[in-house]
Design a protein around this nucleic acid. Structure first.
Length: 111
DNA sequence: AAGGTGACCGGCC
DNA sequence: TGGCCGGCCACCT
């Protein structure tokens, strides 16, 4: 039995790694996949630690509005946008174009 | 040990 | 139409 707290981060990373290339998801979606539902904030916190890991594409995780809320946390100012554009996702004014089209829902069955 | 914070979300006024 | 508030739970000082 590992500690749940560490398991929580692990799960966030696990789902984040499951994000396909050229797709994006929201903190709330991940939170729901974890069963937390309204603890989307924790996902953000996990992402804060996740940004230190290369295995976790935090740049593919945005808020419900499809806005790059955490772009400021990246190494550069527009690094997050650059990464998304590199994936083929159009980003205008820190907002993803056709967000719902690129939106990818975490597969709860794959936990 | 306790308090404050936070890359959010949803509802309400 | 926009802004404000509460809720949620774990991490940090």
């Amino acid at each position: 039995m590992q500690k749940d707290n560490q398991n929580f981060f692990e799960r966030v990373y696990e789902i984040a790694r499951q994000i396909p290339e050229g797709r994006v998801t929201s903190y709330g979606a991940i939170a729901r996949a974890l069963g937390a539902g309204r603890s989307a904030r924790m996902v953000g916190w996990a992402m804060n630690a996740a940004h230190n890991l290369e295995d976790v594409p935090a740049h593919r995780v945005v808020n419900r509005n499809g806005v790059l809320t955490g772009k400021h946390h990246f190494d550069g100012t527009n690094l997050m946008q650059q990464l998304l554009e590199n994936e083929g996702i159009q980003v205008v004014d820190n907002q993803i174009v056709d967000f719902k089209k690129y939106f990818w829902e975490p597969d709860v069955s794959v936990q």
